[in-house]
Amino acid sequence: MKRTILTLSFFVAGATTVFAQKYITRTARISFNATAAGSPENIEAVNNEVANIVDGKTGDIIFQVPVKSFKFERALMQEHFNENYMESDKYPKADFKGNFGNIAELNFAKDGTYETKVAGKLTIHGVTNEVNVPGTVTVKGGSVLLKAKFKVKLQDYKIAIPGVVADKVAKEAVISLESSMTQK
């Protein structure tokens, strides 16, 4: 009986850690570069308003990206990005729902750097695809820093590139992400 109580208290304690082990930020940064080789202008943009949450217990990870918050060097490019390519009024958000493949090896309570792989569903422009993204997790002083770089084929997300800009816009965009989360 004593042991049962012990086990019980262990589970209760476990449950409370589940609640405590969430890390969140609303200022994660995602940038992309879709400049075609030889293009006279850079097709790149940065978004500093990405929301990211991680459940340290289950390894679930979610990103939410307000598409209109991508900033371009040229205002006209930004307008075209939203109006013609991403159709941001119709699809205001891109998101990712995934899971750390090696959550058991990640210790968010202890400083350190880990290699990881996140698998999940990436939705852009209303189209969802399964993706597998390698990245690094750096835990330092209670905050969790996530970094990843991966490629996305525009065609996979039904983003049409008209012929006149085919020499400027690459078929694949390189996406870089940096997210510094703190415990919720």
Binding site: V18, F19, K22, I24, I53, D55, D60, K97
Partner: peptide, 11 residues
């Protein structure tokens, strides 16, 4: 699991 479903809502 319920927690995971709530994650999205929290964002």
């Amino acid at each position: 699991y319920a927690q995971a479903d709530k994650l999205m809502a929290e964002l």
